[in-house]
């Protein structure tokens, strides 16, 4: 029988759901063990709950920036969280601004090399950031300010721009999709009324693609928040990622404490995904109609 929409049989749906759940189990277990370990005196490395002994000491120590239960030096964990957030917000801002402008241009303007640029953007997205790091480091050294007091600020700016550059190609494609979904007539009538292109973009189109902007902001934020390689290479100040990496020493570290730091680091990602699941799914399924 023909139907106007594609409908799977109940059996197939159940089978797919079970397969997805099965595939998710290792991931779910790994994250569960991490979170449980952060509240345990002993690291949980298997499914046995025998090694779970409840404590909140790990969290207290992490929030106090302590590396161990005895003595040691307190690290400024709030500052590291701030640094991580600064990079994440910076990347989100730069990616969103550039992709909103370039996405509009690619969607609405016909210029020489447009098709090539679109293909080139896709190709750029395929480049892993780590493959570019030598060249990016060379640029970093060449552009470094001579005054040592400016290096820290510069390193923030540089890491934001460098990390954002990796996200811009895909974000531009996504933005182009959002602009494509807006009827040309809306923009046309404003231009006929005498509005400039930039005014139309700012006053009419941007409000219509708010969900898209939110999605790009979110992707940019997560890319900046999760980054390790670029912040490790370019940023002078530590972030949560580099703090965890520097203290992940299998022999010395109190692993449940590292688990607490890891969970803290994961929190924004979990919160964002839980609160914006619908938005992200819609974005991935081909843009949102404004």
């Amino acid at each position: 029988m023909l139907t106007d929409v594609e409908v799977r049989s109940k059996k197939t749906e159940v089978a797919i759901t079970i397969a997805i759940l099965m595939a998710s189990i290792p991931l779910f277990l790994a994250f569960s063990l991490l979170v449980l370990s952060s509240f345990s005196k002993e690291m949980m490395t298997n499914l046995s709950l025998e090694s779970f002994r409840f404590t909140i000491e790990n969290w207290i120590n992490v929030l106090q920036g302590k590396l161990a239960f005895t003595g040691g030096i307190r690290q400024n964990i709030l500052k590291y969280t701030f640094n991580t957030a600064l990079v994440a917000l910076g990347v989100a801002g730069v990616v969103t601004l550039i992709s909103a402008l370039s996405g509009y241009a690619l969607s609405r303007m016909n210029f020489r090399g447009r098709k090539f640029l679109l293909m080139f953007l896709l190709m750029l997205h395929a480049f892993p950031g780590v493959a570019l790091i030598v060249g990016v480091y060379l640029l970093y050294r060449l552009s470094l300010p001579s005054s040592p007091s400016l290096v820290t600020t510069f390193s923030f700016m540089y890491v934001i721009v460098a990390r954002a550059a990796l996200e811009v190609p895909m974000a531009t494609w996504l933005m182009k999709g959002f602009f494509d979904s807006i009827p040309w007539e809306i923009e046309w009538s404003a231009i006929v009324d005498g509005a400039s292109r930039i005014r139309v973009w700012r006053k009419i189109l941007l409000p219509l693609i708010k969900p898209g902007i939110a999605a790009i902001l979110l992707f940019g934020f997560l890319a900046g928040w999760q980054d390790l390689i670029y912040v490790r290479t370019f940023l002078v100040e530590p972030t949560l990622a580099t703090y965890i990496e520097a203290n992940l020493e299998a022999e010395y570290s109190h692993m449940p404490l590292i688990a607490a730091a890891g969970t803290l680091y994961l929190l924004p990602t979990i919160i964002f995904f839980l609160t914006s699941q619908k938005l992200l799914l819609e974005t991935h399924s081909g843009g949102i109609k404004g």
Partner: peptide, 17 residues
Amino acid sequence: VASFQQLFQDYLSKQPI
């Protein structure tokens, strides 16, 4: 920090700047 190898890597990348 806990990892002396990691600190060495950090020193290598931060000393030149």
